[in-house]
Write a protein that binds this DNA or RNA. Structure first.
Length: 152
DNA sequence: GCCAACGTTGGC
DNA sequence: GCCAACGTTGGC
């Protein structure tokens, strides 16, 4: 099993929104970064555990856990001309962008802020902590995942 | 609202 | 293939 972290802006889509969705399941769409896409395509398997991270939030931090319930498939919004995620260079024969479905496992009892994560030496190598990191989907080590969840 | 960091685009 | 210009991300 693999472990991941995925960012979302709570003003756009929050952990509470996921819990409110049907079956607590959502299409994780709109990923328009090749590195993030490749992680979804090559690494994400059903049952993988995902830390849900609120970015552009006050404060930013890890807010919940979700699980991959549908492995990578073409992101439908890339074909929708009315969508902000429409990509005229993508085609149905050769789709450029992928989505996965994730199901909420639980919301953490409290938000683990980025500030708190930065103070933990064992997490110093996490990509999330690295300066200038902008990846919205990134792998997390099992020991990092377990440590963060245990902070609550 | 600012701005550093980074990815993408497009002219050459 | 290089790289300047531009747009976006995301913490502060």
């Amino acid at each position: 099993m693999n472990y991941w972290l995925m960012k979302t802006e709570p003003d756009v889509y929050s952990m509470d929104d996921m819990l409110a969705d049907k079956n607590q399941t959502t299409v994780w769409e709109g990923i328009r970064n090749y590195q993030a896409r490749n992680f979804m395509r090559d690494g994400m398997k059903n049952g993988d555990q995902v830390l849900i991270y609120h970015s552009n939030a006050k404060p930013p931090g890890v807010i919940g856990i979700a699980e991959v319930v549908k492995e990578a498939y073409p992101d439908p919004f890339q074909f929708d001309e009315k969508s902000n995620y429409f990509d005229p260079k993508s085609s149905k024969d050769n789709p450029r962008w992928l989505a996965v479905d994730v199901k909420a496992v639980k919301k953490l009892d409290r938000l683990i802020s980025l500030t708190e994560l930065k103070e933990i030496e064992a997490l110093a190598d996490m990509r999330l902590i690295q300066r200038g990191n902008r990846l919205s989907v990134m792998p997390v080590e099992k020991k990092e995942f377990d440590l963060i969840v245990a902070l609550v």
